[in-house]
Design a protein around this nucleic acid. Sequence first.
DNA 1: TTGTAAGCGTTATCAG
DNA 2: CTGATAACGCTTACAA
Lengths: 353, 353
Amino acid sequence: MRSRPTMSDIARIVGVHVSTVSRALDPKTCHLISPDVVAKIGEVAQKLGFRPNAAGASLRTNRSRTIGIVVPDITDPVFPPMIRGVEDVLSERGYAVVLANTDGDEGRESEIVSSMLARSVDGLALASSRFEDKLIPRIGDVPVVTVFRETKKPVAPCVIFDERAGIRHALTHLVSLGHRRIANIAGPRTISTGYTRWEAFEATRRELRLPLDKRLMVFADGFNEQEGARCAEALLARTSDFTAILCANDRLAVGVIDVLRRYGLRCPEDVSVTGFNDMPYADRFVPALTTVRVQQYKAGREAARLLIEAIEGGAARRTRPLRIVLPVELVVRASTGVAAVKGKTRRGIAAAR
Amino acid sequence: MRSRPTMSDIARIVGVHVSTVSRALDPKTCHLISPDVVAKIGEVAQKLGFRPNAAGASLRTNRSRTIGIVVPDITDPVFPPMIRGVEDVLSERGYAVVLANTDGDEGRESEIVSSMLARSVDGLALASSRFEDKLIPRIGDVPVVTVFRETKKPVAPCVIFDERAGIRHALTHLVSLGHRRIANIAGPRTISTGYTRWEAFEATRRELRLPLDKRLMVFADGFNEQEGARCAEALLARTSDFTAILCANDRLAVGVIDVLRRYGLRCPEDVSVTGFNDMPYADRFVPALTTVRVQQYKAGREAARLLIEAIEGGAARRTRPLRIVLPVELVVRASTGVAAVKGKTRRGIAAAR
DNA sequence: TTGTAAGCGTTATCAG
DNA sequence: CTGATAACGCTTACAA
């Protein structure tokens, strides 16, 4: 197959100048050209299967109709729906999406962003930012949105979830089942979700006048099953005096439930467990996970909308960037139940040792 | 922040010509330049945070260090590990990945590919191809690889799994548990996996001298839970004379198990079910799914390797494209058990009516 | 309404 | 070893 036709090819065939072709093919300028010429050009373009060369346009305009999405790891099930949301909105508008994984590495994130800027991305959706972000201010004038996460200083618009409400719902739910001694397996506080969910747990704990016991508090170094398991082990090594565990996300909860089972503790009969995110298939796990449902797909769409607005709506830089907080919803399933009699849990744990 | 520095900026500062800068910065040509000039240029580039403008290079070379990945739907859990595999290999080599979803729509796929070609992608990884593909031959001289799927006519290299072995293992496993009347919920035959798994089921069925009963055969229109449920309903409406269902993938199996439960049938006590893919978390479902494990991540890596080879290794067009078949492995879990007494299953189904 | 011309940043070819 | 120059395909003042 020959190499793709260019505007000059069309110009030559129709017998006009390239610039005329350019104008005729651009909806914004085609009204400047006589209708019949526009029609003719459109026709020929169609017949040749013409597609404007993106590099040429990009070089000239310094825009690429491409946006970058940066996630820690696409295999974490919370991200695909979000990415899909971004893609759905953007592809409709003719934007392409370039995707990269950071594995939570700050250096890598910086490297990736830099390479995306070199590709003249028109915007960036970052799901990889740390709470104390140092990267975004260095990005310059390319629109940036953070998704799922926010930064301590509001340096960019963000689309996040109502973490506080989610944690409050989960904790209140546990208390309503009679739980009083509730452990918290929190996420890394270097990430806004980890930080905020932990903070919300503490705030709600005080509100509900639950006892403070430092042994019931464990911090994970990441939002995954391994860390959930590690933290559960650490918790059980310290104390057995609890009847429920609130986890900062579903994957931690899954790891926790594994360890409970290994210790001969039943969930929810001996220990109730809650997660966060309502990740895909959380309703089919054993036990089905009680968790906080967030709108991952919608977050992606909103992020894309924000980006397009910033890109096309003349970057009306606000003094304080937008902060879109999506509502959440508690989903009660099988991993939570009425509080076990304290003695029973203790015995269960002791027996497992 | 000022706009990114260009080679001219560096040239001006160092006091050389742009072309010298270009050569000095390219590992392939920097030996042509005196070491001290190279050093000087490197230094300045470093200090300015120089990144070559991708559009400029792309326009000139007609290559973009970008490859496109096209999947039906990134929220289907089989794809993220594959995408991650591609990304890992390519990012190491300085390639970026642009991603798009087709939802299985042929027109959309064609549209996406065309838009990617306009972006001068250096290669395409297609996980969206139909068995009777009409698109790939029209792509021209951009390297293409299909992943997870192959085309009837070998028009492009592919990285696939040993579907036949997988189905044979699953069916043999069921027979070894005493099952004889085994239903098959097959995938769409418009897709190579659907076609091949169905064919393999039939071949193995004959080998094992299992009875042929058309009522036990249902074709899904897609690889998802809804279709699994629909097919299970259709199957139960026809007959209750089976003790196991082999499904063409895990998501179908999940939908099937839902319906069985709704009909008061226990899995595996009344009906055994197998899936295919060993999708993430398949080990945590109720019941944990017996399935065929495939190497999604590895497939992605292999596809990327193939693409790089084709792109950089001078497109040595083979007469017959490579066909990489990755081995699979049966994973026996809780969704399969010894065959129920026939009468019992019948009663169970009858009772549920 | 259309043509002219310049230039975006890079690389390849050709001279020196 | 380095410089000059042209060209990739497109957009956009400006001129006609």
